[in-house]
Design a protein around this nucleic acid. Structure first.
Lengths: 225, 225
DNA sequence: CGGACCTGTTATAAATTTTTTATAAAAACA
DNA sequence: TGTTTTTATAAAAAATTTATAACAGGTCCG
């Protein structure tokens, strides 16, 4: 694999410099933007493999940049923020952030996370398939198998499963799932989600009444494991 | 790390002098303000790493200064008070004070508290996950582990734990917790808190009857360590 | 056209969580 | 010490959230 390219969007010059040094010494190619506007333009002209985005930007809030990016950009976005607010984390994750660090952070930890995200991101593309216990997903063939036998999923069910698979282990909020699958005007249609989660469970769970893969987090959302 | 900067807001010149000597001899850079107004302005122009604030100020009460600071300032604020009024202390803690001392105080104790607060503030609070002894919290995955095994928390229990974790070591008053979790109209529902603290203890404490993490501060609130 | 299939919708049962109540235990206080 | 206040815990009732079935309407396809 050639050098992974990483875009840093941060208004603070010293943070950009710090990240530049750390990232380049780890073999990444680094692009930099000092404002949200520049960052979005740069990302559009030259899509990086990963974005590091500061929430506290001068021109537009990081949340806006994230939202804008996510209209077309699918790769990992790591959020930096001075705050350690659960609310903020949920909000950023709701809008598609992949990971989250609060300043001050240890560069070593950031590097570890970047490695993990890039690894995960390159996995499905080389094999284009992943396994979750007895569930096997082939992204190219758009095929799902449970215990080696093919499972027939409808379009919506498949999208839902892919979304879960991409976020293995994390809780996905109702709002986030609804926004991703049905669109932003369906945020309150939690019942759709229940119905489709039910259908998906019937097809991929060994015992749908006692799900091992799609775990419900009451009051919050679902978690895929 | 470069010198931590500490702002002292106190109208009594001899106290300021005492603190200046004590703090500088401990390697801190000291800023001083003799009035609440000056203190707020100084803090805004040059955000310090920690604020020491006297409650008995001539122009505006220390409570007002604290409130004003807290609209944008997130770092530790240590309250000084001549009186040993429980009410006053609780009020200050309710409004975001981090710790408090009553005059006369021993400089050694103040230094110890400052060290502890600054250390905590510069810790690798990566935001994504933290450890408190045998308790491990992953904010991204919204996962809590006790001794490496997953603990299932309800939404409210989790929020409560996060609030505690964010304020490790501080006393959180009943009012403050209730306001943060249930909202400002639940300030008097202390019983809710008792029930949920009990549930949380059952799940995360080794011995719930002899809690090591969630410590009761009778008459005041709880402290998470 | 008719049938199979999928999505969206509604109704209702089941499960979980929160709130309330009661009472015992512990701590603070005088 | 005895009294009062505060806290802990269990258990109930209430409220909320979730699961599931059923069905209407639309679409696709032969």
């Amino acid at each position: 694999m050639s050098k992974a390219e990483i875009l840093v969007i941060d208004d603070e010059a010293h943070i950009r410099k710090l990240l530049e040094i750390a990232l380049e010494s780890n073999g990444y190619k680094v692009w930099q933007a000092a404002s949200g506007r520049d960052g979005v333009i740069l990302a559009a002209n030259h899509p990086p493999d990963l974005v590091i985005l500061d929430l506290g930007l001068p021109d537009k809030s990081g949340h806006e940049v994230l939202k804008e990016l996510r209209t077309w950009y699918a790769k990992p976005v790591i959020i930096l923020s001075v705050q350690n607010l659960e609310e903020d984390i949920i909000n950023a994750l709701d809008h598609g952030a992949t990971d989250y660090l609060t300043k001050p952070f240890r560069p070593g930890e950031l590097m570890a996370r970047i490695r993990s995200l890039l690894r995960r991101d390159s996995e499905p593309s080389n094999g284009a398939q992943r396994k979750f216990g007895n569930i096997h997903i082939d992204f190219i063939a758009r095929l799902v198998k449970k215990n080696d036998e093919q499972v027939k999923l409808t379009s919506t069910e498949y999208q839902l499963l892919i979304l879960f698979a991409k976020n293995e282990g994390n809780v996905l909020t109702h709002h986030y799932i609804l926004k991703e699958i049905w669109g932003p005007s369906y945020l309150e249609e939690t019942q759709y989600l229940r119905v489709f989660v039910g259908q998906l469970r019937k097809k991929i769970e060994e015992d749908p009444h006692n799900p091992q893969h799609i775990i419900t987090e009451s009051g919050v959302g679902y978690r895929f494991v």
